[in-house]
Write a protein that binds this DNA or RNA. Sequence first.
DNA 1: ACGGTCGTTGCACTGACGGCAACTATGCTG
DNA 2: CAGCATAGTTGCCGTCAGTGCAACGACCGT
Lengths: 263, 263
Amino acid sequence: MPSAERGHGLRRDVDLLDALASDEAAQRGGLGVVRLAQLTGREKSQVSRALKALADAGIVERNPDNLEYQLGWRLFSLAARTTANRLARVAEPVMRRLSGEFEETTHLCVLRERDVLTVLSVSPGHSFRMPDWEGEPAHAACTSAGRVLLMDSTPDQLYVRFGNAEPLCGEHPTRTRTVPELCVVVNRFRELGYGTEDEEFEAGLVGASAPIRDFRGRAVAAINISAPKRRLGPRLDEAGRRLAAAAGTVSAQLGFSPRPPIA
Amino acid sequence: MPSAERGHGLRRDVDLLDALASDEAAQRGGLGVVRLAQLTGREKSQVSRALKALADAGIVERNPDNLEYQLGWRLFSLAARTTANRLARVAEPVMRRLSGEFEETTHLCVLRERDVLTVLSVSPGHSFRMPDWEGEPAHAACTSAGRVLLMDSTPDQLYVRFGNAEPLCGEHPTRTRTVPELCVVVNRFRELGYGTEDEEFEAGLVGASAPIRDFRGRAVAAINISAPKRRLGPRLDEAGRRLAAAAGTVSAQLGFSPRPPIA
DNA sequence: ACGGTCGTTGCACTGACGGCAACTATGCTG
DNA sequence: CAGCATAGTTGCCGTCAGTGCAACGACCGT
């Protein structure tokens, strides 16, 4: 049996989409069949047929000249309907205000498996950094944003999520290496209402985060602000409180009522 | 024979995604397996399995409480990483048409910091696309394109972006020298849906611009047409309306849906 | 406890995907 | 212009993965 591995059918097509969203595809206008076959490890004939089907569905589009493929209109239409997008639309004005107040970049993050995904970045108007509002980069859950998103988890759930993958945060000089230690930190964050990080994710970088809750009360996202320690360090706890208030505003717009029914 | 038609594998899964993008799914938090089976005409067992695979790939997400599915972060990421690239592609043919109609050059502009960068220029004859994203000239935000790109900003944000750098447009005989004046102009443009300039950036030059929005509703670029006043002047408002319509076409291809974010 | 709905799982079947190879088209090189 | 290389499509057949049915477990309200 020469076939390396047989993914669950559809997962392979996702690989195609990922390849079409890669930097290489961005640099050039798109990607051809053979290149896509290389990138995904599939047969070029399969790639040809799969792409034809995908193009038929509008997921990808083809340039009639190059015969190169790119992501299609339907994907963008779908992306507009994701919860991440709804969140971003509600949170963006609040984040803009925060960015203006602190003159730093704020991020909107969601939790995916063991990673934190930055969905939206808002920089103050005069930021010198490029608009790196990438959707993709995923960080380990040793950031304040990640820990804030874990606030609702029980120790058992933390174990399920992180298994025995210790140390949790790789080789960084982090104080929390095991799940029990993470529980302690998360508990403190829960009582505070916000979380902070002090060079735990990256040297010289500090940050604060606060959870956004949906109508059910679940922490669905986190607002984060991070910056070099010498700039934000002294104001870190103030930033945390402001973030908590801002996150509360967003949560309210999502239908979250702080002290819901009952007790 | 219950089976209506058998699409090419993934096409059926696209039906699922479409159902998850429906208004019904947006109103409620998500959709359950049985409902999705009804909407797509598939077996519920198949829907269950297919969704499990899709969730595994990150295309959809599951609410652990309801067991309901909703569109996932990966769609958002794919689209976010590709919009910049797609922008020039979908805008180019539209701009070519506009150039032909008006016999003038159209520009595609993006906002960076306090400057407007021209990314693509289309003349009735040929088109020049700027290498990388670095457009060659950087104009102050006193052009119609720049102001159109500022349509979503609040006065506070404008202050953050431009600080106290007055007069805003250098020594040119411009009517807007301060941020409050800029706010007035921007507000008018927002109501119009397009913006115009009359010798404000350069003597003898008039122009019109309209904003292009991506799938998340952000004004990511502006489509602009500028020419000597004696040629374009009389048709300037007509040009503005045409630009707004053209920009709407491009926005739609970027997944922009005019609907407001949430109830 | 009961019926009702929702969601998952087991299992046999078959048709659609998987790979190989032949074919066409285009471009580069001597 | 022949020759070679690369890109892309199509035909073919074996087999594997999706399909449908039905049984099962979970949950909810009366």
